[in-house]
Amino acid sequence: MTVLNENTKTQTSAGQPRHPRPVRRPKKPLGTRAYKVFRVAALIAVVLFLVAPLFWMLLASLKTNVDIYDTAKSFIFSPTFENYANVLQRNNYFVFIFNSFWVAFVSTALSLVLGVPAAYAMSRFTMHRSALVVLMARVIPGVSLLVPWYYVFSNLKMVGGFEVLILSHMFVALPLIVYIMMSYFDSLPLELEESAQVDGLTPIGAFQRITLPLSVAGMATAGILSFIFSWNNFMFALVLSGSKTKTLPVAIFDFVSYASIDWGGLMAAATVVTIPIMIIALFTQKYIVSGMTAGATKG
């Protein structure tokens, strides 16, 4: 083994100086000046289109309701944090924030525990049919599961508890995690595990000590995405949550069931829901992108 190691070492150390970096041909200019101007303009338009509505929501959340109804004060107004104070204190949003966080966190963690080994087995043993069963969960309309779930869980006196919410969110998270991790394991070379097994590790040992540590990036991707999906989930919580376990999306929805809409408060509530998830997204951008595009580019 040490011999082998030295071999690889000499190879790499000898290989580098022998092949100097090829001189890069200067790239041709992509297009005419007109195209460049068009491209910049188009990109600005795209960014505006995507960000402006969110900016508008933020502005409205900082206005009094009088200012919201005054179209002359679209952009110039004296900002107030009253809406946030109202939403957070009077409407108990801290409780909903905690509920959302707790449900998303536990369902993601449990789904990772179940999903990662499953994805590994499905990838290494090419269990396409089994994978299909798990992925079916992504296709089935959620409503068709809710009636039976509601019946069973209300008989078990579980509706309104955290357990049932977590279970239902795992149902969203698990297929996502299996899907992302399968494409991750597919791309991980088999040789590493094989050589670990030659070194005397059992197959499960090799999975534990070699594959898992190498898959941290993949698990981060899958975990972050499933957290976001759980945080954003509305339909399951709408039916299965109770007054004590209400999550943020349901809390926002309840906001408008009164006769007249408190727009300022509603926008503050909407901002409170979206801000944490956007902050997470900003810091984990790379992972989200790789998760969203997992498995998309191969046949």
């Binding site: 995507l50 969110l54 929501m57 409205a60 954003n232 999306p249 926002i252 951008q285 992108v289």
Partner: peptide, 28 residues
């Protein structure tokens, strides 16, 4: 630009719905 692309994607759909309700309100 990449950040801008990510924002709508992760925003909570219910909150997004409420946001558009205000933007598309016929009067205000």
């Amino acid at each position: 630009v990449r950040v801008a692309i990510l924002l709508p994607l992760v925003a909570t759909p219910v909150a997004v719905g409420m946001m558009w309700r205000l933007i598309f309100d016929p009067n205000i």
